[in-house]
Each structure stands twice: as structure tokens, then as C-alpha cells.
Amino acid sequence: MNCLPTRVCAGLLAGLVGCMGWSPVWAVTVLQCQVTYAGTTETVVAMPTEDPYRVAGVDIAGRFRFKPVLVGQGAQLGHLSIYVYWQTQRQPVLIQQAKYWPPYPSPGPDGRVALTGEQRLYAGPMERELVYQCALMEVAP
């Protein structure tokens, strides 16, 4: 017999799970990156994947390609990688590859795990600058 409204049961369950220190089953951890080039900032979000080779890079103003890869499923994370390429006329050239392995740092007061700090990369004949920083965070799917 169900005597409580669904939203009340869901709230009680979420509270119980939270008190026990477990992540809710429906929470998904994502990697959120703020990428800035030429005064324009865009947010790039990487969802967990079991097949990292299918992840496409994001074009940044035709000058760079930014590719964050978060290997895992739901809140269960394996490693994550960030690849940054300089776009040339012939082909993309890898200028940075960063890998992060668990255990990850503890979340800050805002619930985010600041991961990379501010990264500044320079490439090309004019030494173009790309700036990014990434954090892990839990979101509802």
C-alpha cells in the first residue's frame, strides 16, 4: 500500500541515500570545462562514456580542437583525458594531453571538484592562446 505522494517518497529516499553517504543511482558525474579563446568563453561538457574512441572534439574558432573524454558509467568513473589540438591546414596537431586517474579530490562547497586549475596553451605562428579549466560535477540525467 502506497500512502505517500510519489514526490514525498522520492524525497525521503534521496535524503536516506544522502545520509548514508551514497550517490543517488540517478546522478551522473560530468566533466564541465570553460574554454576561452579570443575573448569568447564556451562551456564544453563531457558525459561518461564506455567507448572513448567515439568522442568527437569541439572546434574552437577554427584554431583549436578541444576534446575532453570521461571514461565511466553514471557516477562510477574511471579515468579522464583532455586532448587539445592546434588546427593546421593539413591536420590537427596535438599540443596537450592530460590524464587524471581516481581517486579524485573532494568536492568544494559548491559540490564541484576543481580538477585542472587554469591551463594556458599557445600554438601556431602567432602563438594563439587557449585558456581552459575543468571541474567534475554531479547532475541529474
Rank of each mutant, 00 (worst) to 15 (best):
W101L: 14
P5A: 07
K99H: 08
R112Y: 00
T40A: 12
S106T: 08
L94H: 06
Q34C: 06
L115C: 02
G124A: 09
H79C: 06
G62P: 04
A56I: 07
Q32G: 04
M20Y: 05
A98P: 00
M20L: 13
C9Q: 13
F64Q: 01
G18S: 15
P125E: 15
Y132T: 06
Y100S: 05
D110G: 03
Q32E: 15
Y122V: 06
T6N: 12
R128T: 07
R128N: 10
P5V: 06
T43L: 14
L13Y: 08
G39S: 10
V45D: 08
G15F: 14
T116S: 07
I95F: 02
Q73G: 10
P52R: 04
P125Y: 13
A38D: 12
T6R: 14
G18V: 10
G117H: 07
R7H: 13
V55F: 05
G108T: 08
P141A: 12
G11C: 10
C19A: 09
A75D: 07
T6M: 09
F64E: 01
C19I: 07
V58D: 06
P125S: 11
G78I: 05
G117P: 02
L12F: 11
L130M: 09
G57I: 04
E129W: 00
L115K: 05
A14E: 01
